[in-house]
Design a protein around this nucleic acid. Structure first.
Lengths: 243, 243
DNA sequence: ATTCCCTCCTGTGTATGCGAATATCCCTCG
DNA sequence: CGAGGGATATTCGCATACACAGGAGGGAAT
């Protein structure tokens, strides 16, 4: 009967360790942009916020360092990872290559059930584009890519792909309504689905890479527009175009 | 005067944080196989071994959890990651794809200097094969692949590739002298270098994938030979063929 | 003899305390 | 008026202390 409390508090909050809950909370806040890049994370302050002591906070921060979401500054505490435009482009490119890799394997290995599920999912996105429902499209997009990861039937690769994707989510989150990127995104998804349906993994792979690189190119344009050719050495709060 | 003790312990031990040193030490021991998969890691015991308290040991272990090198067993402590044969094959396949990806980009982007360096490096490996010097070849092999990562001119991708490679090193380390795998490895390197020299990134990529998958296939054969078709649910101490 | 339960004990999870390193601020000197 | 240096204060890194969970072992009952 006490399980009702668990549901009431939140999704999966009290099940695990305190340090895990703090880590997950911080991950969400960084990915969502609530914690902007470069902002300092003081241990005592976080401990007060979460009603815990510094020990689990420290553990959570150390784990985030390994994940690459925060950086240590000597003995001056940790800050939300402050990435250079070059590094962001590197991450986008890596993400593009990883996604392309997954599409290729997924095309060759997905079961008919998985394929039909993916097709159905893709078709459902048309209504979101028509309604210009960016939130719904964002959620769909995440599921779409995760289905492809899963269809590789390689759980390790799926985890790696999801990790890279998670690290970029902070940049993808905001400013979805940038130009007509969503409609183009859907068109590109359509071309990818075409190749998958034909069982042409290499074509699907190339199209997925182009799909992701289109977002990166739009990002580059956006950065140049906003900061000029030689902008600030680091950014982290800028909205990015949707893939 | 007490600093003499610190210097006596190791080379670059006193620079960073204590938890980092412990983490690095444990990483090496896991990768080298000194700590076999499945063995429990008790905090107090490790603290005694490193002459520290449990706090930095705990932080090191939590970081290793994120890295995927160890697993938590509820409140019963952590153990060295115990991987199933399926997961190991997944990791090998992912590694193959990642390496292929890197070769492709590196071929298109490497500078003439990098190319000549890589060629020189590759040629130096011939003597090691002739002498059947597995240790030297192992060291060369690591450098060879890292040079390719670096030549992608994408630091994030290089880090990802190195991370995957590090996770597999525990399996690559032992049993290099398995059949004539080293000579075949060198031949495959040669074919890859040929494609790189011709600027044919796609061919180099395919050859690198095949190169890595050959090692995975040999691994599969080795596992089947040793444990039979339905072997134990997990392995971690078995020597693997060299890529 | 086997099984169930109780107790103890080992080990993790968290809190707190202390020393050290560094940033900050103010005072003094040029 | 600006710059440099020192004292203070804040915060990190590590150690120690305490609370609780889960298992091992023994004893008793069937």
């Amino acid at each position: 009967m006490a399980e009702i409390l668990k549901v009431a508090v939140g999704a999966e909050d009290d099940g695990g360790l305190l340090s895990d809950r703090i880590r997950n909370a911080l991950t969400d806040e960084i990915a969502s942009g609530a914690l902007v890049a470069g902002s300092a994370l003081e241990e005592q302050q976080l401990a007060d916020r979460f009603g815990a002591s510094r020990t689990p906070v420290r553990e959570a921060l150390r784990q985030l360092v390994v994940s690459g979401l925060v950086e240590v500054r000597g003995r001056r505490g940790v800050v939300v990872a402050r990435m250079t435009p070059e590094r962001i482009m590197d991450m986008f490119e890596t993400s593009a290559e990883v996604e392309a890799m997954c599409v290729r394997l997924a095309t060759f290995r997905m079961t008919p059930l998985e394929r039909s599920h993916l097709i159905e999912l893709h078709e459902s996105s048309l209504a979101m584009v028509e309604a210009n429902d960016v939130d719904a499209y964002d959620a769909f997009n995440r599921t779409f890519h995760e289905c492809i990861y899963s269809a590789t039937h390689n759980s390790f690769m799926a985890e790696q792909a999801q990790d890279v994707r998670a690290r970029l989510s902070a940049f993808r989150r905001t400013q979805l309504r940038q130009g007509d990127r969503i409609r183009k995104s859907r068109d590109e998804h359509d071309a990818i689905m075409q190749a998958i349906a034909e069982g042409d993994g290499d074509t699907g792979s190339r199209r997925m890479r182009a799909h992701m690189l289109n977002a990166a190119a739009a990002l580059r344009r956006y950065i140049d527009d906003r900061f000029g050719r030689d902008g600030p050495p680091s950014i982290g709060d800028g909205p990015l175009p949707h893939e």
